[in-house]
Design a protein around this nucleic acid. Structure first.
Lengths: 173, 173
DNA sequence: GGGCGATGTTGGCGGCGACAACATCGAGGA
DNA sequence: TCCTCGATGTTGTCGCCGCCAACATCGCCC
């Protein structure tokens, strides 16, 4: 019979928990993301996550850090200021829940060094291609604002963010 | 003795709850904002808030809507595109927790008509002074991005957001 | 002046985050 | 080869929370 009992030890629980957490985050937002629900989704007991994450907040921080890693990789892969802008907006559009978690208030008071580091890494990718530091910051703020307004549903459907992008940010001289 | 018992009815509970909620929000972020804690802070029983707000989410939405109202008023009072940019950044800098709530993921899936309306009112104030709609949206996105990065601690301390603002957004012709 | 709706209280249920104690497994030294 | 030990997962529990139900108290209007 194939009723082979699940082994006592999962074997690869940490990534499984992160994957389950991201699915729950997409499905129900951060409010619906309980540690116990994540554990249920991964098929383990309600306390198993504590062997891999110190708290619910630590799990969210790990998820956000992973998101910053992915965003940084996408930025590094894209070419030029405009290309990075496109990549940034695409990331936010494809993973709005994760993007909101990365920049959201859930992790605000918290100081998770790995999270800060991951964020800094992503931003470093942006800074590399701009004419100077102020321009890079302006570009980042603009793209971040566009992404946030779109993710939050405040952006009118009939306006292309990319067109707006080209209005404000001058190309590298 | 002046041990005059508190009257059975508070008399003005709704604004008191909102004020207590904002204080708790500033103190501990949205995660620390429980309906029961708000009730305790206002000196009423744990169920009294339900006479004024249908749910915790409704209270948060009301708080955010109030924030949008204040932001819109500040924008309408400010003159010119640059003045509005300053006012927007000042609001976000003075009330970072409220600003994050207004745009945060807490209220994401939720459709509170009053909240949407309040947000639209604030944005209408911004749109009134720009050269055209695309420029207004670009200015809004840029200022919103600046405010968000600052509120989340991603903005370098040695760069003036206002200077960056003037880089990107052309003045009204 | 008396009823009634608005407002506030107590009580309770299920879910959650976190802690403690116990169970199970695999690896590595005797 | 076997046995111990640390890593990983489980059950049990506590207090807090959101929300529902039932009851208490007040002011207003007939």
């Amino acid at each position: 019979m194939s009723t082979s009992k699940e082994p006592y030890h999962h074997g690869d629980l940490r990534p499984a928990l992160l994957a389950a957490a991201e699915a729950l985050l997409v499905a129900g937002g951060p409010a619906g993301l309980s540690l116990r629900a994540v554990a249920r989704a991964a098929g383990v007991s309600h306390n198993a996550p504590y062997r891999h994450f110190a708290s619910r907040e630590a799990l969210l921080a790990a998820l956000a850090a992973e998101g910053f890693g992915r965003l940084g990789a996408a930025l590094r892969q894209a070419g030029g200021l405009a290309g990075q802008g496109r990549a940034y907006l695409a990331f936010a559009a494809e993973h709005p829940a994760l993007y909101r978690l990365m920049f959201g208030a859930e992790l605000q008071g918290t100081s998770h060094p790995a999270l800060r580091e991951a964020a800094a890494g992503a931003f470093a990718a942006l800074a590399g291609v701009a004419a100077d530091r102020s321009t890079a910051l302006a570009a980042w703020a603009l793209v971040h604002g566009l992404a946030g307004l779109r993710a939050d549903g405040h952006w009118p459907a009939d306006v292309d963010p990319l067109a707006v992008l080209s209005i404000a940010i001058p190309a590298k001289p």
